[in-house]
């Protein structure tokens, strides 16, 4: 018995499952770093988040959609990890993250029909929901264990961006707080205040490079995102260094790298053509700086990406691939 089908008769090794697996692997360095710095609480939050995301998707597919569950494709695991990486490692998150997971999967993803149909990055939908509903818990940050300097006790401190926003709102200048900003070394290796996943730039970049090598993402969104944020913040900084944060701090704080490599690049919610991806990244970068500088929240990455998610269908229409035989 022979099969008959039309061409092509071969397929690349690529599959949705494999791409999700690559994203998972790319997030492992962040996961390890978060456990190193925040200890058990990071582990509990991440596991809770992943388990809840998978569970909620499964329940909705089984009992609402009455169809076989697609949990196996791994996208719920990825969302769960990303969600966890976007919250502070405090004990109150142990239960808040469950609500975040429900919103992520229920409203962010399944309400639209599941993977591939959701216009917004589900993890960001969950995160923004938590940020608005639990503003205090979501912005109380434990300082990561200062294992470099020997300090081991976790303590609560504002993130660098929150600190600056507050100071400027009270009429101070950046110079007043510069001594309280984390050192460059702690940005790169970790140990500054912030969410689980954003403490170490090195871990994020390592994961990003892995994604690039596996061709899960292209360089266009991260590079244009980071580049646009760098340029705009650099321009503002040149205009008035007292009022505006310098571009390097801008890039290394507030989850910008995490957003640029892992959130904005979510294939479902970002444009498909090369030119569209550049437009998307530039939009994310500019909006991030604008929201951080003039908006009510100290951090703008999540909102910027969600806003750009909303215009992705438009970008897909406006920036089509260049036709060969035009």
């Amino acid at each position: 018995m022979l099969y008959v089908s039309d061409s092509p008769h071969i397929h690349s090794a690529d599959s949705t499952h494999l791409m999700m697996w690559h994203v998972f692997v790319a997030m492992l360095p962040m996961f390890v770093v978060s456990i190193l710095f925040f200890g058990l609480s990071a582990l509990i939050i991440t596991l809770t988040s992943v388990v809840c995301c998978c569970l909620f998707q499964w329940v909705i597919e089984r009992f609402v959609f009455h169809r076989p569950s697609m949990v196996g494709d791994g996208s719920a695991v990825v969302t769960g990890m990303l969600l966890a990486f976007n919250v502070p490692a405090t004990p109150s998150m142990y239960w808040i993250i469950i609500i975040g997971a429900l919103v992520s999967m229920g409203i962010g993803k399944m309400a639209f029909g599941g993977l591939g149909h959701n216009p917004f990055n589900p993890a960001l939908v969950g995160r923004v929901f938590m940020l608005i509903s639990f503003p205090v818990q979501m912005t109380t940050w434990p300082v990561a264990k200062q294992w470099i300097s020997g300090q081991v006790d976790a303590m609560t401190g504002p993130t660098p961006l929150g600190l600056i926003k507050e100071t400027i709102a009270n009429g101070g200048t950046i110079a007043d707080v510069s001594s309280q900003l984390p050192s460059w070394g702690s940005y790169v290796l970790g140990s500054m205040g912030g969410s689980l996943g954003e403490v170490s730039a090195l871990a994020i970049i390592a994961g990003g490079v892995y994604l690039l090598c596996c061709k899960v993402i292209t360089w266009r969104i991260p590079v244009s995102f980071i580049g646009a944020a760098f340029l705009l913040s650099g321009l503002l900084w040149l205009v008035d260094a007292d009022m505006y944060l310098d571009p390097l701090h801008t890039l290394l704080s507030g989850g910008l790298l995490l957003g640029a490599f892992f959130m904005a690049t979510d294939m479902v919610t970002s444009p498909m053509s090369h030119s569209g991806q550049l437009v998307f990244g530039i939009g994310c970068g500019l909006l991030t700086v604008v929201i951080r500088t003039w908006g009510a929240y100290p951090e703008g990455v999540s909102f910027a990406i969600l806003l750009m998610n909303a215009v992705t269908p438009l970008i897909n229409k406006g920036f089509r691939p260049k036709r060969f035989s035009a």
Binding site: H9, M19, M70, G116, T269, P321
Partner: peptide, 29 residues
């Protein structure tokens, strides 16, 4: 072709990754 190479994998939903569009030598969608 071997039997194992001959069967198409089951189709899942489009994840809007853009791979098809970037592979197309004619610049189509």
């Amino acid at each position: 072709m071997n039997e194992s190479e001959s069967v198409r994998q089951e189709e899942t939903t489009c994840i809007r990754c853009g791979k098809c569009l970037n592979a197309c030598p004619m610049g189509l969608e």
